[in-house]
Design a protein around this nucleic acid. Structure first.
Lengths: 259, 259
DNA sequence: CAGTGGTCTAGACCACTGG
DNA sequence: CAGTGGTCTAGACCACTGC
């Protein structure tokens, strides 16, 4: 790998007098490491090369690599462990799950009820509606996988989730695969389909229980439920999942920290 | 200010064989800067001394001060502006408000509807119930200020908020002061009472509109509303506000980013 | 132009992990 | 013990702001 000049290529400057985008070296190194992460050169859970090795590879100082990795760690794309190395982040870790599941019991710590019981109700291949296509950056009519599942805590059905995935990257996903896998769904996506969810946006509303939701969640029709619509993104802000969750909030609540 | 040794005082080690807590120099510097922020040596909106000045004051290198300030900036306690200096963060800035108000219109950018209309319904001094006392780390019966307000967007009442504040630090707060002030409430707290909110925890539930909420929000009784219970903290994780909000989510939603 | 924060480097040393 | 990440320093230079 050749050395990267600390300044962006001025030839990219189109209009006369336009400001040349200044890109620090460590940002460029971050981009290069990001590429290797996306390409799968290093897989989730594995160690990436040491700071010294990367510094040699990119012909920069260790401090510059360090700052690049600092940012990747802040983005949760990578995890540092002193004395051991730097590892590609994975959803197959207990504490990571609660970054994406914010419903916690009113009493007791998150996850204190033990693992949820997961029941896959349905999983089928359909054609994307205009709305779903828009959310997933597809075209109407493109094939998508649709699934529904129920999460129960201590035997009480608490969450119903419908989710839609683009069919191409998730080719081969079935209700059986989902049911047989014990662990976070996003961990399965990593190992089986090489899709790593990096961030997500959620829109939260209060809605009355309708349709079949009341019976699935064992509440009376019209009971207020938390509606949580999520779009999850993989690298480069590519949307890879649309999820609509309905949460009972009589014994649980959605916890959020503002800072 | 004397130089701080890079290691914690071993005499603090009580039990034989107990691990001595290791505290990096930059963390200690961060703590010292934090003290100055709390004490009001530098006020919200003002510049703190330059990195070089702080390095001289604490007898450490600029790089160490830099790392300390980096963390303070990441915590949003301080804002860096290249070429100008480092400034104490304040809630009297537009983009900061949306860190603490996550209800956004379904269409259009956050705040695109213009500023909300704020109506103070009530503000009185009461004695803390056991529940409120617990949330604010007070004792039952301690004096607290209770207020209720309605926020309307485009003339539509959308949020009802009840809030409780410890009476001592907020001595002198009245409905008039709240009504007359145009700007974020937390900005008023900063300038008038020297209380700066640093972070908050929110518990979100779906509840039916009850009591007087239905009429205040102009919805029919039983309509699902988002219940948002917030405890806001000032420096050192001291709780300074309990707030219960009820949000209409027919044209707005609570937005959250998971990363 | 001086002063600020931002980047990059090189080197020394410390803390932690595992063989 | 060697190898990893973590801290600290000193110095050079760059980018941005305002006078």
């Amino acid at each position: 790998m050749a050395a990267v000049p600390p300044f962006a290529d001025p030839s990219a400057d189109a209009a006369a007098g336009a400001a040349v985008a200044f890109s620090p070296l460590y940002q460029q190194i971050k981009g290069l490491i990001l590429q290797s992460l996306q390409s799968g050169e290093w897989k989730p859970g594995e160690a990436i090369p040491s700071e010294m090795e990367l510094a040699a590879r990119y012909r920069v100082s260790q401090g510059t690599v360090r700052k690049a990795i600092d940012e990747l760690a802040a983005d949760h794309l990578v995890v540092r462990r002193q004395g051991k190395g730097t590892f590609v982040a994975t959803h197959a870790e207990n504490h990571v799950q609660f970054r994406f599941l914010k419903l916690v019991p009113d009493t007791g710590a998150p996850g204190s009820e033990g693992p949820a019981q997961r029941d896959i109700i349905d999983c089928r291949r359909i054609r994307a509606s205009a709305e779903i296509a828009r959310a997933l950056s597809l075209r109407s009519g493109d094939a998508v996988l649709q699934a529904r599942r129920v999460l129960s805590y201590a035997g009480v059905p608490t969450i119903v989730e419908d989710l839609w995935l683009p069919a191409t990257p998730f080719k081969g996903l079935t209700a059986e695969r989902l049911s047989d896998y014990h662990g976070p769904m996003y961990a399965l996506f990593e190992t089986e389909f090489n899709v790593r969810m990096v961030r997500a946006d959620e829109k939260i509303r209060a809605v009355p229980a309708a349709d079949g939701l009341d019976s699935l969640l064992q509440v009376s029709a019209g009971t207020p439920l938390l509606s949580v619509e999520r779009i999850a993104y993989t690298y480069q802000d590519i949307p890879m999942e649309l999820r609509r969750g309905y949460y009972r909030t009589d014994t649980h609540h959605y916890h959020n920290r503002l800072s």
